[in-house]
């Protein structure tokens, strides 16, 4: 089985580490750790919102260099600047498939917009670790990971 490379860009270090640990145990998955380490990797945390200082470009450049197959990012990060990060990733790193991490405050409309800007799936931070493993393989196969209810809402958008 070919290995799927995964990177996680979560603003919360504890959550990020937990997800990294869950995925590291997955068959056929290689997790690129510390991609957000100051100096060593792209910063997608505190300074992330400061696009004008070029941090978004740094992130995109880092992802383009590391070329993870799957990149987990927070929905909150993705919506900043009219989905500028997703737009840039979609353009500059077409081989990297973005998966959104959501919390309870996530609104369906935001998720749909993020998907419209190229994200290939979304998962709650609180989802069982096994779903993260499944989602990685499903998305790697070129499919998407969203609920049937969300698919229904997307269909409504497409049709109307």
């Amino acid at each position: 089985m070919e290995t799927v490379t995964v990177a996680i860009a979560d603003m919360d270090p504890g959550r990020r580490t937990r997800l990294e640990q869950s995925l590291q145990g997955g068959e056929g998955i290689t997790v690129l750790t510390d991609i957000m380490a100051p100096g060593g990797g792209a910063r997608i945390d505190g300074d992330f919102q400061d696009y004008e200082n070029g941090s978004m470009e740094e992130v995109v450049a880092k992802i383009a260099q590391l070329k993870p197959r799957i990149l987990f990012i927070n929905l909150d990060q993705s919506i900043i600047g009219d989905f500028a990060l997703l737009d840039a990733l979609h353009r500059e790193c077409p081989e990297t498939l973005v998966v959104l991490l959501t919390d309870r405050s996530a609104q369906d409309e935001q998720i749909i917009q993020a998907l419209a800007y190229g994200a290939r799936g979304c998962l709650s931070h609180e989802a069982d670790p096994c779903y993260f493993l499944k989602a990685v393989h499903v998305i790697d196969r070129g499919e998407i990971w969203v609920t049937r209810k969300m698919l229904s809402k997307i269909m409504d958008k497409v049709l109307h």
Binding site: L115, I144, V158
Partner: peptide, 20 residues
């Protein structure tokens, strides 16, 4: 909910991206 095969849901998302 929408009962659609996963392979087709990919079409659906691509169409959403294109429209956007």
């Amino acid at each position: 909910e929408l009962w659609i095969r996963r392979t087709l849901s990919w079409h659906l998302l691509n169409e959403l991206v294109m429209i956007t």
